[in-house]
Amino acid sequence: MKLLSSVLARHERALLEPISPAAAWHEQLFRTFRAVEQSRHVFASPFGPLRGSAGSAHLQRFVYFGPGATDAALRLSFLGGLDHRELRGSLALLRFIEGLALAPDLGQGLDLSFFPLVDALGLAEATPARDLAEENWATSTEPEIQVLEHDARLRGYHGFVRLETTTSDEVTVRLHAEAATENAAPPLELISSDEIEPLPVRWEVEADADPRRGPLAVADDLPVAPFELVLAIPALWPAARHTAAVSLFLKRFVRRHRGFIAYAQHL
């Protein structure tokens, strides 16, 4: 009886203790893998192992092909967890992927790649702390960024969507894009305020974005000048609200942009 009481007490303490971000990541990653195994449209395609100074890790990647996807499909890359110390965006992206595997309802003609945790070596404690968000994709020596750079050149994305958090009490949507050119995506066509209701959103547009940082560093080598959209969710929001906001935004953004691209192709 004493042994049973001791086991039950430890179990109760475990239930009361908050789960660590790393443990939450691995638990949600397992659930996402289980959902993807049964999917005909979402596939797991990890890279690695990547080598750090103190160990190795895999860069998790998931790919969604909508029904009827062709070489002309809308191609987008979604990035989360550029800092392993902030995993709320990573967890929200994993849950979004899990939901997409269970209900692939985003529409036809889509080719979407998801990298929910870019700072994989950081989470594995295989490298010192880094600021991957500021890395130049064309010249970086960081293993994860080199993988992303190679993937971007190979797949020729139309745009990149990065998830992060903000100290603000409202969602911030920040667009990085080249100045308007024949091949650049029109900023105002990406998403509208009406489609994000009821989220409180602040919009920022940065034309002529610094080409020395992030995915825009490889823009000149891609067939279409891409954009980078940064979705920053308030850090103080609870996990459930954070996840719901990410899901709402990504679904409406993809559907709107897919519709715009389809319309433009038939002009």
Rank of each mutant, 00 (worst) to 15 (best):
residue 213 R to N: 06
residue 247 S to W: 08
residue 231 L to W: 10
residue 144 E to I: 12
residue 205 V to P: 05
residue 230 V to G: 02
residue 206 E to T: 15
residue 191 I to Y: 05
residue 266 H to S: 00
residue 188 L to F: 15
residue 33 F to R: 09
residue 101 A to V: 05
residue 227 F to D: 08
residue 260 F to C: 00
residue 104 P to C: 11
residue 62 F to L: 02
residue 76 L to W: 02
residue 79 L to Y: 14
residue 10 R to K: 14
residue 118 V to W: 14
residue 190 L to M: 07
residue 98 E to G: 06
residue 66 G to H: 10
residue 187 P to N: 13
residue 118 V to N: 12
residue 131 D to W: 01
residue 12 E to I: 07
residue 249 F to P: 04
residue 25 W to D: 00
residue 1 M to E: 01
residue 215 P to S: 11
residue 158 H to N: 04
residue 92 A to T: 09
residue 251 K to T: 13
residue 34 R to G: 03
residue 30 F to Q: 11
residue 29 L to C: 03
residue 151 D to F: 08
residue 124 A to E: 12
residue 85 R to D: 03
residue 112 L to K: 05
residue 171 V to S: 06
residue 11 H to I: 06
residue 87 L to K: 08
residue 247 S to G: 10
residue 83 D to C: 06
residue 170 E to T: 05
residue 117 L to F: 08
residue 225 A to P: 01
residue 115 F to L: 03
residue 71 D to C: 05
residue 244 A to C: 10
residue 154 L to N: 05
residue 201 V to C: 05
residue 179 A to L: 12
residue 141 T to L: 01
residue 32 T to Y: 13
residue 182 E to L: 14
residue 128 P to E: 14
residue 239 A to W: 14
residue 169 D to H: 13
residue 56 S to H: 12
residue 59 L to E: 13
residue 237 W to F: 11
residue 53 S to I: 14
residue 241 R to V: 12
residue 190 L to E: 06
residue 186 P to K: 15
residue 257 H to D: 08
residue 38 Q to M: 15
residue 166 T to Q: 08
residue 191 I to D: 00
residue 177 A to E: 03
residue 162 R to Q: 09
residue 72 A to Q: 03
residue 202 R to P: 02
residue 45 S to Y: 04
residue 216 L to R: 02
residue 137 W to E: 02
residue 253 F to D: 06
residue 130 R to E: 12
residue 137 W to S: 01
residue 181 T to L: 00
residue 218 V to D: 12
residue 109 G to S: 09
residue 11 H to Y: 06
residue 130 R to P: 00
residue 82 L to V: 03
residue 122 G to M: 14
residue 229 L to K: 08
residue 9 A to M: 11
residue 131 D to Q: 15
residue 47 F to P: 03
residue 106 L to N: 14
residue 96 F to K: 13
residue 147 V to Q: 13
